[in-house]
């Protein structure tokens, strides 16, 4: 009796399992995804669970040194100038930090992609105007604009999202338009047109799915950029205002105590750097995973480079 099944093809796996396997094939990307998952969980549940702890002042524990478990695990990273536990504050601040970046990326991607599809697909003059609009936004010194707008409109979370979203629109606009221009001429779009498909159907069922992977990759990278921009604004004192907290604001709050309590600025900065690094690594992985001609590198489970 011979068993021939051992050399047969492996069973076809579910989609989720396939993606997980591809993620596991790139260890850096795997840990990046894991870290981001933890960060997102912190952002969702952190304020609920640790909200009180993060704002409770304890003047006896001012600038308590890190790596000391005597006061409890939330003080593992030390305490800030008012004796509030840094670890709890970093977890709670994840919400604002990620929310601002996610909001800005979401709105700029939707608006930019929509305008880009119109500009690339339509042959009317309005398409030209959309591109000029993008150029004008691009030529603005974005940080300066943000400073003026936030100084005028009160630095609230919604306004910061608004300013950052506007400055990032051209990125999506240009990419979507360039890809749409190219995809529009491909055979399957021509075929759909000949068969009498409506413009709406062509744009959403034939062009958008081709453009989408690029957009996801860019959005991941841009998320990191927007997070850094928000941190810079908060650091300069024109972003999020206390008592709200973000990681950038925490770095700025720790600045006066640099000489005797480095941990006040160090840990939130590390949180920023780890998050942006994870996003960059994940974006690299996405670029390969979403590209049908490159995907084998991950499916083979071998080395992936290039």
């Amino acid at each position: 009796m011979t068993d021939t099944r051992t050399i047969s093809e492996p069973k076809p796996k579910g989609r989720a399992a396939q993606w997980l396997a591809m993620l596991w094939a790139d260890k850096f990307a795997f840990f990046a995804a894991l870290f981001l998952l933890i960060a997102v969980l912190c952002a969702i549940f952190g304020p609920m669970l640790l909200g009180d702890l993060a704002t409770k002042q304890n003047l006896r524990g001012r600038n308590a040194a890190p790596f000391d478990l005597e006061r409890g695990w939330v003080f593992f990273l030390g305490a800030d100038a008012l004796g509030r536990p840094l670890l709890a504050r970093i977890i709670v601040a994840a919400q604002n930090t990620l929310m601002v970046a996610a909001g800005a990326v979401f709105f700029s991607a939707i608006i930019g992609c929509g305008l880009g599809l119109v500009a690339g697909y339509s042959r009317k003059r309005s398409a030209q105007w959309i591109m000029r609009l993008g150029d004008v936004i691009m030529s603005f010194p974005s940080l300066l604009l943000a400073v003026i707008v936030l100084y005028m409109l009160e630095p609230s979370i919604a306004n910061i999202v608004l300013v950052l979203a506007i400055t990032r629109i051209p990125i999506y606009l240009r990419t979507t338009r360039a890809e749409t221009l190219e995809v529009r001429e491909r055979m399957f779009v021509q075929a759909a047109k000949v068969m009498g498909a409506s413009h709406k159907r062509i744009v959403f069922r034939h062009i958008l799915p081709v453009v989408f992977p690029t957009l996801v990759t860019i959005a991941t990278l841009d998320f990191a950029f927007v997070m850094l921009a928000e941190s810079s604004l908060s650091f300069l004192g024109i972003g999020i205002q206390a008592p709200d907290i973000t990681w950038g604001l925490m770095v700025s709050q720790g600045r006066p105590y640099l000489t005797n309590a480095w941990w006040l600025s160090f840990w939130p900065g590390l949180a920023i750097i780890l998050t942006t690094l994870s996003l960059n690594l994940l974006s690299n992985w996405l670029r390969i995973a979403l590209d049908p001609t490159q995907r084998w590198r991950l499916e083979m489970g071998g080395r992936k480079n290039g």
């Binding site: 990191a224 850094l228 941190s231 810079s232 650091f235 950038g248 770095v251 700025s252 600045r255 640099l258 000489t259 480095w262 600025s265 160090f266 900065g269 920023i272 750097i273 942006t276 690094l277 996003l279 960059n280 690594l281």
Partner: peptide, 22 residues
């Protein structure tokens, strides 16, 4: 290069001041 591209410059500046200047 990935780490460099991900780092917030204000944070690096602060860390550098603490280490090299202070």
């Amino acid at each position: 290069s990935l780490v460099g591209a991900s780092a917030p410059d204000f944070w690096i500046a602060i860390v550098a001041i603490v280490v090299f200047a202070v």
